[in-house]
Design a protein around this nucleic acid. Sequence first.
DNA 1: GGCTACGGTTACCGCAAGTAACACATGAGT
DNA 2: ACTCATGTGTTACTTGCGGTAACCGTAGCC
Lengths: 214, 214
Amino acid sequence: MDTTQRTDQQRSADRRRRELLEAADRVVLRDGPKASMNAIAAEAGITKPILYRHFGDKGGLYAALAKRHTDALLGALRAALDAPAERRERVEATLDTYLAAIEARPQVYRFLMHPSEGGTPSDQGFDVGAYSFPLLRRMGEELADVIEERVDLGPDSQRLARVWGHGIVGMMHAAGDWWLGERPCSRADLVRALADLLWGRLAAAGDRAGGPGF
Amino acid sequence: MDTTQRTDQQRSADRRRRELLEAADRVVLRDGPKASMNAIAAEAGITKPILYRHFGDKGGLYAALAKRHTDALLGALRAALDAPAERRERVEATLDTYLAAIEARPQVYRFLMHPSEGGTPSDQGFDVGAYSFPLLRRMGEELADVIEERVDLGPDSQRLARVWGHGIVGMMHAAGDWWLGERPCSRADLVRALADLLWGRLAAAGDRAGGPGF
DNA sequence: GGCTACGGTTACCGCAAGTAACACATGAGT
DNA sequence: ACTCATGTGTTACTTGCGGTAACCGTAGCC
């Protein structure tokens, strides 16, 4: 029970863990979300049981992997959110940061968000339902915190901020997902369109000819 | 190759198919998304290969099942969208319809949206990545059509409408998902909060004390 | 040298998707 | 009445994954 020794062990374990995560990252990048535990273990140069010793089960590995990326992304988003500029600019910067991230590493993004869209119809892939949504939830909560902290919403501000946080994140996510798949326009266009939406342009727009509008 | 006979066969097949889908629905409702093909077959009073003869693979069954629910939901949404009222009221009605649907049948909803959050961490459940997002996509496209058809957005209206359609659907989805999990407020409150967001209240709100706002 | 502790492996279990090959009915053609 | 094609169903299997138990080797400590 020597403290230093324990620290040494811990360090070693942490290093190993990081190595394993890097390997997992690599294989996920290569094979997509259908990466199997065997494949990851092989990439790391070891065998399955070690993975399980480190991460418990596949969910644990996934959670660790997701946490890495989520933390990085959240850091970037927070930076964009905290930049010194007007609110609209910040919103656009945040949207752009998110979209740039998913654009830069679509494989990672798809891994985090979409469970196994790859080759085989039979899945066996990661279960994202239990983990990708926590990712969205975390983003939503973070954004809610920022909104509540910064924007004056009168009474009910707490509830309102949380609804908006999750709603805006969902908007960003869905639009980004669609955009990433179809690439119907430039990133800047998408950012503008979304910011316009948030800025109430839907409410402000006039009806089209032919009856009361949407 | 007699036509009437062929129709008879087709009808029989269709009836069978519908029965199987009902059975699948029941078992999914009961067992959650981790329903196995065996369980579904058993519920239908038959065995696996028949399911495969009808639906090809699990994805096919899932897609058929999802289509049923999606069609129903889309019908309801379209009705809300097409009701004779002001735009804001329509938006609120649509949001409320969606939320009421997921509130009324959370099991179905979770099945459609979340892959296997049930019991075992090891999944084997349905692969939603490849099917739930098509659901969101469909809703997004439908909404985009309605927006473009009804709202005057000037040039670029097509692109803008599609972005907004997917964005709004994503907002609704994420907020609904979070709300369904935490139930932090009444449905009406949520609807109002989201509609307020879409109506530009974020842009209109003042900064909070302590520096430039979000 | 012997002994514990830890990193590692092989070999296995359970389970679900998906399939091949076989069985039984039923109606048409001769 | 016999056969034979066709659709409906079954049993029994393969494959491939997640997850685990039980077994090795080697480093350090007494």
